[in-house]
Design a protein around this nucleic acid. Structure first.
Length: 200
DNA sequence: GTTATGATTTACT
DNA sequence: GTAAATCATAACG
């Protein structure tokens, strides 16, 4: 079965919410530290640039941290949250439009041994990748991978199985209550009844 | 220069 | 159920 890497142009559409939904079922791949890992994306959230109070780039606020969000779609935006967790986003839209999709959970496919080793767990269970900080740890993604191009050979996304049977649920985003009315936007997407979707 | 804080996880009472 | 861990960044002086 051939899986094609998503083309850089794929990321540059102007509807970040739609892209977040379409990312479900595709496969996030990393080749870091000599270990290749792959995981099917089962949960995402859209962050809609300057009009979204939950987005780091809201109100055209451009800083050193979120600078990469203003670049053209197809880059990785990785940053450290709570001093502990690395969060991985896919930058979308064209240069100057700071949209991004947060990858919140994946289902492990390849390199599971490496993931378990990085996470320090012995069994394959939700502890591996069912959460935005967990999946980056499992797949070896660190802040040094910020601004990585997703058409390279370190981090990329492949087309997944055709997902006719997957039912997509949309609901509110998590951990953004500070964003007031924008916290109510139903911009979190996940695959129904998939056991790897994050808790809370 | 200082200080507050978070797109979370984990451990503990 | 609640709280601690832990630090780069952003906002301010």
């Amino acid at each position: 079965m051939i899986h094609d890497k998503l083309d850089i142009n794929w990321y540059q559409g102007d509807n970040v919410v739609e892209i977040a939904r379409e990312l479900l079922g595709n496969v996030l791949c990393t080749n870091i530290g000599g270990q290749q890992t792959k995981g099917r994306i089962v949960e995402t959230e859209a962050y809609a640039g300057t009009n979204d109070k939950a987005c780091h780039a809201n109100g055209q606020r451009k800083t050193r941290r979120n600078e990469i969000m203003f670049a053209a779609g197809g880059h990785a935006y990785v940053y450290l949250c709570y001093g502990i967790h690395h969060l991985f986003n896919v930058v979308t839209n064209i240069e100057g439009r700071a949209d991004a999709v947060l990858i919140r959970a994946v289902e492990p496919l390849d390199g599971i041994e490496a993931m378990m080793h990085r996470r320090g767990v012995r069994e394959i269970n939700r502890q591996l990748t069912a959460g935005p900080g967990m999946l980056t740890a499992a797949m070896g993604i660190k802040t040094l991978h910020n601004a990585t191009r997703l058409d390279g050979d370190t981090i990329w996304i492949e087309e997944g199985e055709t997902s006719e049977n997957q039912q997509v649920i949309s609901t509110t985003r998590i951990g953004v209550s500070y964003a007031r009315e924008d916290a109510l936007k139903p911009w979190r997407f996940y695959i129904k009844e998939n056991p790897w979707v994050s808790k809370y």
